[in-house]
Amino acid sequence: MKDTAAPSPEAIRVDELHKSFGAHHVLKGVSLRACEGDVVAIIGGSGSGKSTMLRCINFLETPSSGRISIGGEDVAMRPDGSPLNRKQIERLRQSLGMVFQSFNLWTHRTVLENLIEVPVHVLKTPKDEAIARARKLLARVGLAEKEGAYPAFMSGGQQQRAAIARALCMEPRAMLFDEPTSALDPELVGEVLQVIRGLADEGRTMVLVTHEMKFAREVASHVIYLHNGLIEEQGPPDQLFGAPKSERLKQFLKSVA
C-alpha cells in the first residue's frame, strides 16, 4: 500500500497529545511527525513521558486527548481519547513493530515460534512462508543457530535481537523502540545498536526512545527533547546536540555525557 509516487508519505503523525494518569498530567500536548524513512529519536530525563508518548502511538496507553494517524489513517477516538474501534487498533498495531526495554519474548515458545506467532496466527501468513522469512531475519540479526532455543537460555543482547526480529517478521510499516538497550549489560549494548543501525541504514521508519545520545546523533533524522511532558526543543541531531538552545537541554546533555 506504499505510495511510491509521493516522495515520502507520512507514516506516523501525533497531534497535540495529552495523557493523564488520574490527576497526574503526564503529556501536555506533544506532537510528532515521522515520514517514511525517518528516524525520530525521543530523548529526555527519566519520567519526562517518553515511554508514555511512544505507547500512545500504538494505544498501549489510551490518550486523554489529541489525534493520532498511522500511514495517513486517523485512529478513530472517542472524545475521551479511548479508541472507538478495536479492530482498527489491532490492524494498525500490526503495522507498528514495538520493541520493549525488557524484550518481552514469550518464554514458552522457542525463538522461531516467537517470530512466526503473529504472522501465522494473526496475519494468516502460510506457515512455511513465515518460517522462511523468520529464518532470514534471524540470520540477519546473527541468531541463525538459535532458532530452537528458549529465550530464558539466551543473553539479554540475544533476546533483544530476537525481539527485534520478531517485530520485523510482521513486516511493519514502522518500528517503535522503547529504550531497547537500557536493560542490557554494557558489553551487550553494541550488538543491539548495530542491528538497529542496520535498520536505519536500510531506510526503515522508526521512533526510538533512547539514552544513547551518541547513537541518537548518528542515526536520527530528527530529535525530540521531552521535558515534563512537553517538547522543550526539537530539530535535526546536529543542531540539537551540537548547538542546543534551551538551558534545560544543555543541562540534560551535560548530565548524560
Partner: peptide
C-alpha cells in the same frame, strides 16, 4: 503471568481471545 508477555502480544495486534488462549493460558 508477566505483564510484558501480554503487552507484547497486544502491541502486535493479537485479539483478546487469541491472546488469552495462546499467551496467558500457556504462561
Amino acid at each position: 503471568v508477566p505483564a510484558g508477555q501480554i503487552e507484547a502480544a497486544r502491541a502486535m495486534g493479537m485479539p483478546p481471545l487469541m491472546l488469552a488462549w495462546r499467551v496467558t493460558f500457556p504462561q
